[in-house]
């Protein structure tokens, strides 16, 4: 039994460097494995729709005739299941997280495969 058992520890941290980071100024380091967000290399995708059917959260929508691959970033739980089931290895997990959004219409990312023109990426308005 004793008093001030933690005294040494707190004096050590008083004169040492804080363990926390000044967040917006100092960015967090991610590991190569970090699951941030799902990305699709649309040139490899064959729009089979397996990722959409297997998604536990129902965040992915694929349309074969339109050559469209669409993900709702706020629904996605980044479980990586779509990446694991993708037969053509088109899907991958980016290290960086989806940035927070104030505008709900930005939550859906849609990718279109090439029709005439090359790959283009755009953020769809309020789907």
């Amino acid at each position: 039994m004793g008093f001030n058992v933690i005294g040494k520890t707190i004096m050590k941290s008083l004169f040492g460097k804080p363990a926390t980071a000044m967040y917006p100024i100092v960015k967090n380091e991610f590991y190569p494995n970090t699951r941030g967000r799902i990305e699709n290399d649309i040139t490899l995708c064959n729009y089979c729709g397996l990722c959409g059917r297997r998604c536990p959260a129902g965040a992915i929508e694929v349309s074969k005739p339109e050559k469209k691959w669409e993900i709702d970033r706020t629904r996605c739980i980044v479980c990586n299941f779509c990446v694991q089931v993708c037969a053509r290895n088109a899907l991958s997990t980016e290290r960086h997280y989806t940035t927070p959004m104030t505008d709900k219409s930005k939550r859906i990312t849609t990718l279109y495969g090439e029709k005439e023109e090359p790959v283009k990426e755009k953020v769809q308005e309020n789907a």
């Binding site: 707190i10 941290s13 008083l14 040492g16 363990a19 926390t20």
Partner: peptide
């Protein structure tokens, strides 16, 4: 500030 530093934070 001092309390925070003792707790390992910036404060």
């Amino acid at each position: 500030k001092i309390s925070a530093r003792m707790q390992g934070r910036y404060g």
